[in-house]
C-alpha cells in the first residue's frame, strides 16, 4: 500500500512538472493522456496481489 502511495506521489509529481513544461495550452491537449496514466496506475492497485 505504502509503495503504491509513494509511486502515486512520483507519478503526480512527474505530471505536475510535465504540465509546467508544456504550458497552459499544450497542457489542455495532453491532459487526457495524463489522466490515462493515472487510470492505469489506479488499476495496478486492484490487480496487485498484496
Amino acid at each position: 500500500m505504502w509503495e503504491w502511495i509513494a509511486g502515486l506521489i512520483w507519478l503526480i509529481g512527474i505530471l505536475a512538472v510535465t504540465g509546467a513544461v508544456l504550458g497552459q495550452d499544450e497542457r489542455e491537449n495532453f491532459m487526457p493522456l495524463m489522466k490515462l496514466a493515472v487510470l492505469l496506475y489506479i488499476l495496478r492497485l486492484f490487480t496487485s496481489s498484496d
Binding site: M1, I5, L8, I9, I12, G13, L15, A16, G19, R27, M31, M34, K35, V38
Partner: peptide, 20 residues
C-alpha cells in the same frame, strides 16, 4: 493513522495537479 496520512497526501496531490 495510515488512512489519515493517506488523506493528507491525497489532498496535497489534488492541489498539485488540480486537473487530476
Amino acid at each position: 493513522v495510515p488512512l489519515l496520512i493517506v488523506s493528507f497526501i491525497l489532498d496535497y496531490l489534488s492541489r498539485l495537479v488540480p486537473e487530476i
